[in-house]
């Protein structure tokens, strides 16, 4: 296996090195890549879309079709994890574990014993010992809202600064995952059910594709936001700017939901119990 690996690696490396002498120097401003197509985007982008961040303009408008499938890729990944891992039948175990919330004491109840189900003071847990750290809990409780706020800012400010739907969505998802890590999966399920996450991920991508379909219905080509102008009551350039914002929100929703869904399924191996 090692010999095979070495041969393959050397072949691929050799192939990549073979082209190297004809590479333009790194950072060469007159290389074909810098002179053929990209000047158009830089010079026209802001005028066409009111988005000074050219990357956003290209990503969400000129090459919006690519980005739609990018959102579809991440959606499929989330769905794939659900499809592969989710188990619906509950394991019936002989012994069950409960934690007494005020004291943090773990109760072990043998089969046939009386469970404190329904009591406010007890919660079911899965592993024998779950650390309960007040400092971590409190810190995360404080940080999470600010991370979420920042995520919203990143989504909304994608036209003017680095950011956009993907980055903001990942941040928002990270905030929820942080909460899940500091508490446990069950406490997240109480706030954000699996069903809701699934729904949000599909709705997010639907917003994107749906915007494209609306453009199509209004007489333009797919994803040509200028045709939204009449509906939004603005001129064509502003309509493109708004169109970008709409699809960024859709992407943000989808990415957030998928990040959470990936965490739900990977951390609990699809059982949706307490998780890590």
């Amino acid at each position: 296996m090692r010999a095979l690996a070495l041969i393959t690696v050397l072949m691929v490396g050799g192939l990549l090195f073979y082209g190297l002498p004809d590479f333009p120097d790194w950072g060469d401003p007159v290389s074909p890549a810098s002179t053929h197509l990209s000047p158009f985007y830089i010079e026209q982008g802001a005028a066409d879309t009111h988005a000074p961040n050219v990357v956003t303009a290209v990503l969400a408008y000129y090459r919006g079709y690519d980005t739609m499938f990018e959102a579809a890729v991440i959606f499929s990944a989330g769905l794939a994890c659900f499809f592969l891992l989710r188990t619906f039948q509950q394991k019936s175990e002989e012994t069950r574990l409960y934690r007494h919330i005020p004291t943090g004491v773990t109760l072990r109840i043998e089969e046939g014993g009386k469970t404190p189900a329904g009591s406010e003071e007890f919660e079911p847990i899965d592993s024998h010992w779950v650390p309960y750290d007040m400092i971590i809990n409190m810190t995360c409780r404080l940080i999470v809202p600010f991370v979420q706020l920042f995520a919203l800012y990143v989504i909304a400010h994608g036209h003017y600064s680095p950011g956009g739907g993907f980055q903001g969505g990942v941040l928002f998802g990270a905030a929820i995952i942080l909460f899940a890590i500091s508490h446990d999966l069950r406490s997240v399920f109480r706030r954000l059910q699996e069903k809701a996450v699934m729904f949000l991920s599909a709705v997010g991508v639907l917003i994107y594709a749906g915007t494209g379909v609306v453009c199509l219905v209004l007489g333009g080509n797919f994803l040509d936001y200028s045709f939204l102008a009449g509906m939004l009551g603005v001129d064509a350039v502003m309509a493109r700017s708004h169109g970008i914002l709409i699809i960024e929100i859709g992407v943000g929703l989808a990415v957030m939901a998928v990040m959470v869904m990936l965490y739900y399924n990977l951390s609990s191996a699809g059982r949706h119990d307490e998780g890590l």
Binding site: S34, V58, S76, A77, A80
Partner: peptide, 29 residues
């Protein structure tokens, strides 16, 4: 155009990053 770097590769790589995250997720599953 000479004042700003080429935005196109960055756009493409946003896509590629997402693809690699998605692949990683499915691989781990």
């Amino acid at each position: 155009a000479i004042d700003y770097i080429n935005p196109l590769p960055h756009v493409l790589m946003l896509t590629a990053i997402v693809v690699s995250v998605a692949t990683l997720g499915v691989a781990l599953a």
